[in-house]
């Protein structure tokens, strides 16, 4: 059975990865038609690269959440 601690860490990890995926694939990646058009070269949202970095940070914060999650009554 997965403990609450592991669930919390997984939630934070998933949030971080989701932010990375959305900020890159949706907000910054050069998708469009025609694909070589310069119009799609820059991020669609200003500070999308910063969101990607924040996503990386949140993903690694999952480790801190896992270790620091309070232990109830001395047992998981």
């Amino acid at each position: 059975m997965i403990s609450r601690r592991a669930w919390a860490a997984l939630l934070v990890l998933t949030a971080g990865i989701a932010l990375m995926v959305v900020s890159y694939l949706v907000l910054a990646a050069p998708w469009g038609f025609p694909p070589e058009s310069e119009k799609f070269s820059n991020p669609r949202l200003a500070f999308a690269p910063l969101l990607f970095i924040i996503g990386v940070m949140i993903a690694f914060l999952a480790a801190v959440v896992y270790e620091l999650w309070p232990q109830r009554g001395g047992k998981e």
């Binding site: 910054a28 990646a29 690269p49 990607f52």
Partner: peptide
């Protein structure tokens, strides 16, 4: 942070 293109190696270096 505002304009970097995540597919650029510069982004990888100076931000990642």
């Amino acid at each position: 942070f505002r304009y970097a293109r995540p597919q650029s190696p510069f982004f990888g270096t100076f931000t990642m």
